[in-house]
Simulated assay, not measured.
Amino acid sequence: MTQDVIPTSASSSDPKIDPLSPFSLANQEGPGQTITHIKLRSDNYEEWRRSMRMSLKSRRKFGFCDGTIAKPTDKFLLDQWEVVHCTVVQWIMHSVDSSIRDSISYSEDASVLWKELEERFSVIDGSKIQSLKAQLNDCKQTKGMTVTTYYGNLKALWEAIAAHEPLLACKCGHCTCGIAKEALARQEMERLHKFFMGLDASLYSTIRSNQLALDPLPSLNRAYQVVLQEERLKARGCSYG
């Protein structure tokens, strides 16, 4: 008996699918369901991909798209696999805007369809990357802008750039040097310094200096919380900076 099937009784010949199995579908998870409100157009692939991937992962179904959930050999599980697989294909097609849907060659294989959409719409445009980095360089907290809005602007640009330039990571599976962890730490520090550099100096120069003097430096999330607290204190007419 596989881990994806639970028997109804010790002698039952009518097995049931484990609700936590990727081969399981909830009652409301039909092929006509909309699992993301972001429609794929010709200019928003990265945003669509992130939303779809998160929605599928939350349902334990992304493996049908990346090919990691292979066809089972067990007849009962194979039937369930095909049901869920067809449902995932329908979810993908329902998330494609009607303006480009007819130009997509319909495939009943979710991994083939996912790959086709990636190849067609995931275009690494050098000018786009340069534009995003220029926007990041110019991103600052202007007069009257809240810390939350400023940080939100930064975060959106960081995510857009990361979609085109993902962090370096070991691909051999045998690396012990920790390059992925080191790359993540370096990215965290770069983002921390950018966050501090773009703050309104007339309001946060002191708190910025105090935070940068710490050893070790605070995490980006911690720095954001500290500055946010300072903003709230200033709004009440007091400050500890």
Rank of each mutant, 00 (worst) to 15 (best):
K133C: 04
E159V: 04
A163L: 03
K133I: 00
I161H: 02
C172E: 05
A162P: 04
H174F: 00
T146C: 01
H174P: 02
P166E: 03
D125F: 14
A134T: 13
T142Y: 03
Q130A: 06
I179S: 02
Y151K: 06
I161V: 12
L167C: 06
L136H: 12
E159Y: 08
Q130M: 05
C177Q: 06
E165I: 03
L168Y: 04
N137C: 09
I124K: 11
G126A: 10
G144K: 03
I179V: 11
A134G: 02
Q135C: 05
E159T: 07
T149P: 10
Q141V: 07
V147E: 15
S131G: 06
K171Y: 07
Q141L: 12
I179W: 03
N153V: 03
T148W: 06
H174V: 05
G178Q: 11
S127A: 10
D125V: 14
M145A: 14
I124T: 14
V147S: 11
I124E: 14
I124H: 15
D125Y: 15
A163C: 06
Q130H: 05
Q130T: 12
M145T: 14
A156K: 04
I129H: 04
T148E: 13
T146N: 06
I129E: 14
Q135V: 02
C175G: 02
A163W: 07
T149D: 15
M145P: 09
C172Q: 01
A160Q: 15
K128C: 03
M145G: 10
T149G: 11
E165C: 03
T146K: 09
C172R: 02
A134Y: 13
A160V: 05
P166M: 01
K140A: 13
L157A: 09
E159I: 08
T142E: 15
C139I: 02
K128G: 03
S127G: 05
E159N: 12
H174M: 01
G144N: 06
H164D: 07
G178M: 08
L136N: 15
C172N: 11
W158K: 10
